[in-house]
Structure formats: structure tokens, C-alpha cells
């Protein structure tokens, strides 16, 4: 190389703090935060290593997964059904309420900056409260049980879905809307025929995805007493019935896989049909 190209005439950009500093600083801060966390929480690597053996013991105790008796199995099946009902009911309630909210927060429907800004901030704020926190709140309002669970899921996902819908509405093609308006259709008709057919696939696929994800959420909130199979799972772990606990985990896994398979089929049918 040195023989091929002549020596440069201009000033070569120097290596220094300006070019490399921010990168090194960023890595330093990340490492520092990690070390701070370990020290602050008094985490000893030795405890983790000795715990590993204990994890192995628990795994061994889980084998083979078994409900012990048929009657227990039926109880778990009933509870799993309750968990699925909580997930479906909570998600569909959230979706039905989220649709009008989504239109309200969409800039191309409500062309008012104040309404747009306030509704967006409101959705963002409420969205940041997790399902588990909603469950704890609703248990105090309507008491223990699946009703509180369904309400928790509905409140947690209402705003997330509304935001998704409003974004789908905002990216919808404007041309069909004009086509309907130019044919003498009302504004409502332009939304019904110009926008709804465009967002319907997004609506259905997101709702299906949320039902699947909420089956897991409904299991977790069952642990704090909001109905469903979660309560049985936490109970079995508490009394060290590891075989039954692992059986319940497998049941939830199977249920989620089943919902996933169904929703994939429905989604595919939606995409090809209308």
C-alpha cells in the first residue's frame, strides 16, 4: 500500500476523546450500573452456583408431570377453562371499547390537535399500568375471582389496543375514503367503507395475538387471586407438589399452543379472503 498511494497532503482527522470518548463512556456507564446493581442487591455468585444444584433437584422432582388423580385433573381442566374465559372475555371487551377510542385518537378522523394530544397522552399513561397491578386494584373493587381477572385484562389492554388501532387508522389509504365521499356518502359512510375494511385485518390479528398473550397473563394474575389456573399453580409450588406444578405448566403450554394454531389459521383466512 505505502508504495502505491502518495502521502496525504491535508490534515488527518486525529483519534481522540471526541471520536472515541462517547463509545467508551457508554460502555463504562453500562458496566458501572451492572456492578452497582449486584452490590446494592447483595448478590453473591456463590449463592447462584450452589442454587443451581437445587434447581436440578426441583427439575428432578417435577418428573414425571402428573395430576396425581383424575379428579385433580378435572379440577385443573375446569380452572384452565376459567383462565381461557378470562383471557377471551377481557381481550374482546378491551377490543370493542378500544375501537371507538382508536378513532378518537386518530388524527385523520378527529382533526383537532388538542383532542389528539390529550387522547394520545391518556392512552400512553394508562397503558403503562401492568395487568398485575390492575388485578390487585380490581380484586379490592369487585372481590376475588375471575371477574376481577377479566376486568384487569380489559383495563390493561384497552389503551394498548386503542393506540394500535389509531395508528392503523392513521396509516389507512385516503383514496377509498375520497371515493366514498365523492359518491355522495356521509362521513360515517366514508369511515365504514373507506377505513374499516382496511383496518379489519389489523384488528382481527391483533385481537387474536392479545388473546394468546393474555392466556399467559391470566395465569399470572390467578396467582394473586383473580381466578383461573394460576391459583392452583402457586398453591402446588407452595406445598412443594412439583409433579402437579409441572403438569399445570404443561397444560397452560398446550392451551397457548392451541390458541396460536387457531389464530394462525384465522389470520391466514383473513389475509386471503375478505
Amino acid at each position: 500500500m505505502s508504495g502505491m498511494l502518495p502521502a496525504p497532503q491535508g490534515r488527518l482527522p486525529e483519534y481522540g476523546w471526541r471520536s472515541h470518548g462517547p463509545g467508551f463512556l457508554g460502555i463504562g456507564i453500562a458496566v458501572g450500573l451492572f456492578v452497582f446493581g449486584v452490590v446494592r442487591l447483595d448478590l453473591a455468585p456463590a449463592r447462584f452456583l450452589s442454587g443451581l444444584a437445587r434447581l436440578g433437584d426441583i427439575m428432578a422432582l417435577m418428573m414425571p408431570p402428573s395430576p396425581e388423580t383424575w379428579s385433580r385433573f378435572l379440577v385443573y381442566l375446569d380452572a384452565l377453562g376459567q383462565t381461557l374465559a378470562i383471557a377471551v372475555l377481557g381481550t374482546t371487551t378491551a377490543a370493542v371499547l378500544a375501537l371507538p377510542l382508536g378513532f378518537l385518537a386518530a388524527h385523520n378522523i378527529i382533526a383537532n390537535n388538542a383532542v389528539h394530544f390529550l387522547s394520545r397522552r391518556l392512552l400512553d399513561t394508562v397503558r403503562s399500568v401492568d395487568t398485575l397491578i390492575w388485578a390487585l386494584i380490581w380484586i379490592n373493587v369487585v372481590g376475588l375471582g375471575p371477574f376481577a381477572g377479566a376486568l384487569a385484562i380489559a383495563s390493561a389492554d384497552l389503551c394498548a389496543l386503542a393506540k394500535l388501532f389509531s395508528e392503523a387508522i392513521e396509516t389507512a389509504d385516503r383514496r377509498p375514503v375520497e371515493g366514498v365521499l365523492a359518491s355522495g356518502g356521509s362521513r360515517a359512510a366514508s369511515v365504514r367503507f373507506g377505513i374499516v375494511p382496511q383496518i379489519l385485518p389489523v384488528f382481527v390479528s391483533q385481537v387474536l395475538y392479545y388473546i394468546e398473550s393474555n392466556t399467559r397473563s391470566a395465569t399470572i394474575i390467578g396467582i394473586v387471586g383473580a381466578g383461573g389456573i394460576g391459583l392452583h399453580l402457586s398453591e402446588m409450588i407452595r406445598v412443594l407438589e412439583w409433579q402437579q406444578a409441572s403438569f399445570i405448566i404443561l397444560m397452560v403450554l398446550a392451551a397457548v399452543a392451541m390458541i396460536d394454531a387457531i389464530s394462525r389459521r384465522v389470520r391466514r383466512a383473513m389475509m386471503s379472503g375478505r
Partner: peptide, 12 residues
């Protein structure tokens, strides 16, 4: 009105 881009509802 007839539009350059037809302005039909594609999914219907």
C-alpha cells in the same frame, strides 16, 4: 367522480 387512482375499496 372518476379518479386517476380509481379509489376503489380494495378489500371489498
Amino acid at each position: 367522480m372518476i379518479f386517476q387512482q380509481f379509489n376503489l375499496i380494495g378489500r371489498l
